[in-house]
């Protein structure tokens, strides 16, 4: 169901930073500063990460066994630590990518992140889009059914939600059509 105010932008972003950093580690171990740079380059166009976010996220991932410290450069603060993803970390990314998002507002940044990460880690980004379409359609069927059996007020409320879901879906279709181009671009 399409619901307002369930997710705020921050919450969605906050939830995906960990997975995004994990995904970036899949192609090989990286230092803290390198992770921040890669994140900002691929996903942080208008919202670069603070170092503080990187460290708090990495220490949570460490605690949960999803990453391990692979080395520490001499003379360094936390940005000099080198992190490597663990098997549990890879499984975690895998599950996150395979689980469609509940249709909600401000979804596109999470979906964009998933698609780019899938391409970066040589997974099937088309699958992510297909699964998400399916999840959206599930919501649209419920709304369509409610609309059919409801009064005019129901119809108007459902229509509003349906148009928003449809906008998401149009973005999904367009992205699906551009996957080949995007793959080339993210590989640069």
């Amino acid at each position: 169901m399409y619901t307002h105010c369930v997710y705020t932008v921050c919450r969605v972003l906050g939830m995906s930073i960990g997975h995004t950093l994990l995904g970036l580690l899949e192609s090989g171990p990286r230092h803290g500063y390198d992770l921040k740079r890669a994140f900002d380059e691929k996903f942080g166009h208008d919202r670069p990460l603070h170092y503080g976010q990187v460290y708090s996220t990495m220490s949570r991932l460490l605690k949960n066994g999803l990453v391990e410290v692979d080395g520490i450069e001499a003379g360094g603060g936390p940005e000099r630590k080198r992190y490597a993803i663990t098997d549990a970390g890879i499984t975690d990314v895998e599950q996150w990518l395979a689980t469609p998002e509940k249709p909600a507002e401000y979804l596109q940044s999470t979906l964009y992140t998933k698609v780019v990460l899938a391409l970066l880690t040589h997974r099937d980004a088309g699958d992510i889009l297909d699964n998400q379409r399916s999840e959206h359609l599930r919501s649209m069927r419920i709304l369509t059914d409610r609309k059919r059996h409801g009064d005019l007020a129901d119809q108007l409320v459902c229509d509003h939600a349906l148009f928003h879901l449809e906008a998401d879906l149009r973005w999904l279709e367009l992205t699906a059509a551009r996957l080949d181009k995007l793959r080339v671009e993210v590989a640069r």
Binding site: R133, H136, R141, L143, T144, L162, L169, R170
Partner: peptide, 8 residues
């Protein structure tokens, strides 16, 4: 999608 929403 809005048409497909009438499907099962």
């Amino acid at each position: 999608a809005r048409v497909a929403a009438y499907s099962d």
